[in-house]
Each structure stands twice: as structure tokens, then as C-alpha cells.
Amino acid sequence: MNQKATYEITITDKLRQLQVPDMRDAIWNRIEQQLDLDMPEDYNPDDTPDSPKNGGWRKTGWKVGPFAVIVAIVTIFFINKNNNTKPNNTDQSQPVNTQTVTPQINDPTSPPATRINPKTGKIESVTDGNTPATASDSVFDQQPLINIPIIDTSTHAPVIKQPVVQQSTQPPPRQDSVPPKKSRGVKGISDKDYHITLKKDSVP
């Protein structure tokens, strides 16, 4: 501190008596305007977002975290969807086997599988238990997958392909595709009735 002269003390005392102009509100409006620009009321000076010390990452993490999770879920969903659609496309590239076979199986107008019993000469159904059903038949009878175009191939694709291959490699035509033979002759008369045998009394 310095040694003030007498006149300097007088000046200081006089300045302390100075009436300040009433610009209270006008000045506060300017201050408030500047504060609203620099640090709006919802801004908390403690919330420095990048400051780990103040937990900034934790505070912003709850906002960013769910968004990141949603993005990850959507991404995984689309990746899986793409993986599912690719095998389906390959299946669609081979629709001939499945689509041509299926109507034959499902067609109710097609004649049932039959055969002629060589002993009796009667027409019998092949599904009477004497002729076992083929694997392809059993699969087609089940009809589990063919009518469903989009199926997870990771679990069902082998099931679809297997019957198609077996069906195409099976050499003999299906019995139901062969028209049943008409029985010749009069009903109730068999070959036995035409068989001529020597009787004991006719022998000389």
C-alpha cells in the first residue's frame, strides 16, 4: 500500500459517496442475454461431457448406449436375413424338381396305385401292406416343407433335397402312373376252368 496524500483521501471519500445510476435492469438484461448464449440454464458447468473425472462418459453413455444396442440388433437382424435369403434363392433356382413332383402327389384325381394279383387275377391296391411304401412316398405324404417357400435351410434344407434326389434317381415309374389292366374274359371264369385234364374213366 502507498502513502496517500490528503487530497487523495478526500477524492476517495467523495467517490465513495457517488450515486450510482439505476441501470440495474438494463445491465442485468445484457448479462442474462450473454449468459443464455454462453451457458444456457439447462447447461450445468459440472457436466463436462468429455471429462472422465466428472463421469462424463457415464453420463453420456446412457444416451449413446441404447442407440448402439439398437443399431447392433438391427445389423445382426439384416445379416441373418441375408444369410437366410441366399439359400432360398438357390432353392428357387431348382424349383423344377419340387414343383413338378408335388402336384402329382397332391393331385386327388390321380388314380390310386394298384396291381393285379397273379393268383386271384383281381386288382388290388398297393397300399394294402404287401408293398412297402418307398421313402420318397413317405416323405411326400408328409408334405412338410414343399408348400413353405422360405424356411431356415440350416435345419431343413437337407430334408428338402433328399427326397428330390431320390425321386429323380428312382428308375421305375410309379405304379399309379400305369393304367390298370382290364381283365379279359367273363367274370367268374378263370384259366382253371379251361384247363383240360384226363379223367381216369376216359383212359382206355
Binding site: 467517490l15 441501470m23 448479462i31 450473454q34
Partner: peptide, 28 residues
């Protein structure tokens, strides 16, 4: 604060400038 600000200003408008800038600094 206004009494102090007026010592360094030529008029009231100068003092108001000093006050507004000073209090913004105070709050920041």
C-alpha cells in the same frame, strides 16, 4: 460493483459495459 466500475469509465455507458462483462466473468 457499479461504484468501482465508474472509477474506470468516462460515463455511465462505459460503466454499464464494464459491469456486464465483469458479471458474466463472475458467473462463468
Amino acid at each position: 460493483a457499479m461504484t468501482v466500475a465508474m472509477r474506470y469509465s468516462r460515463d455511465e455507458m462505459d460503466a454499464a459495459d464494464i459491469m456486464s462483462h465483469a458479471f458474466v466473468k463472475v458467473f462463468k
